[in-house]
Simulated scan of single mutants.
Amino acid sequence: MPSLRTTQPCADEPALRQRGFTLIELLVTLAVMGILATIGFSTSRWIESKRLEIETQQLQQRLEALRQLSVSTRQSWQLCPAAASGDGCGDDWSKGYTWNFQEGDAGRLAGTHKSEGVTIIWNKKSNPVFDPMPWKTFTSYGHFSLCNGSGSNQISINDAGRIVVDYSNTEDC
């Protein structure tokens, strides 16, 4: 009688190997990549929003400081777009802004701030100047619009030097 031999893999035969990925592995990988992309997108939006908020607060604080400096130093202070060379006034607010006496040099009290990730628009042709004699009139003096991909804010200044911030304003951007 012939012997019944069961087929068992020999130690010498190579085991069958899986080539490629299973459908489940691919779906799990795509799901993880989708979650990471969503987190990355929402984080970049949050960063833009924070950058707009910080730039708005810094400009507001600078304007308040210039208003106070004008009274304490009895000099007119000017805020103007930073020049590309770094000296004096330029014509593009988006590169940043500089502050100094309207007439002369304020020395170490003068300064420059470079804006990053935010577009700044001043709605008047002349630069804002803070006079040492407050409370002249109460008509609108002008406003700054600060914009980026997350939204926009507006900082208004009246002739009395009062500064008002309007968050989430989309008027000029």
Rank of each mutant, 00 (worst) to 15 (best):
L30D: 08
L52R: 02
T43H: 12
L26I: 14
H143N: 11
V28N: 09
I39R: 08
M133S: 14
E64M: 14
V129G: 01
N100Y: 01
V129K: 05
V32F: 12
N158H: 08
L27R: 07
N158L: 06
N153A: 09
T38I: 11
F41Y: 14
W122V: 08
E103A: 14
W93Y: 07
E53A: 14
V32H: 07
S152P: 01
Y141L: 04
I47M: 12
H113P: 00
T119M: 10
D105G: 06
F41A: 14
G117M: 04
N148V: 05
E48Q: 15
Q68P: 01
T29A: 15
L146W: 00
T29N: 10
L79H: 01
W99I: 03
P81C: 08
T56K: 04
G149P: 08
S94L: 06
K124F: 07
Q154P: 03
Q68K: 10
Q57V: 11
E116L: 11
L69F: 07
M133E: 15
E25T: 10
I157T: 03
Q60C: 09
A110T: 05
R162C: 01
E25Y: 09
N158M: 06
S115N: 11
E48R: 12
I47N: 11
V28H: 05
A84P: 07
W93C: 02
G149Y: 05
T56L: 03
I35L: 15
S76F: 03
V129Q: 03
F101T: 04
E48K: 13
V118N: 02
P132E: 02
C89W: 03
L30R: 09
R62C: 12
D87S: 15
V71T: 11
G111V: 02
S72Y: 08
R108Q: 13
S150M: 03
P134D: 05
E103R: 12
M33C: 15
G149C: 08
E55T: 14
K50G: 12
L23K: 09
T139K: 14
R45Y: 09
F144E: 02
D91F: 11
I54C: 08
R45M: 12
I24N: 10
K95P: 03
N158R: 07
E103I: 13
I157D: 00
L36Q: 08
A84V: 15
I120H: 06
T137K: 13
D159P: 09
S49W: 08
I121A: 10
S126E: 13
I47D: 09
H143G: 07
R67P: 02
M133A: 15
Y97G: 00
T98F: 00
G88P: 01
L146S: 02
Q68D: 13
H143E: 09
T98W: 01
W99T: 01
G117I: 04
A82H: 05
G34M: 08
N127Q: 10
L59F: 06
G104H: 06
S42E: 10
D159E: 13
G142E: 01
I24L: 15
S85C: 10
G86N: 08
G34Y: 04
I47Y: 13
G90W: 00
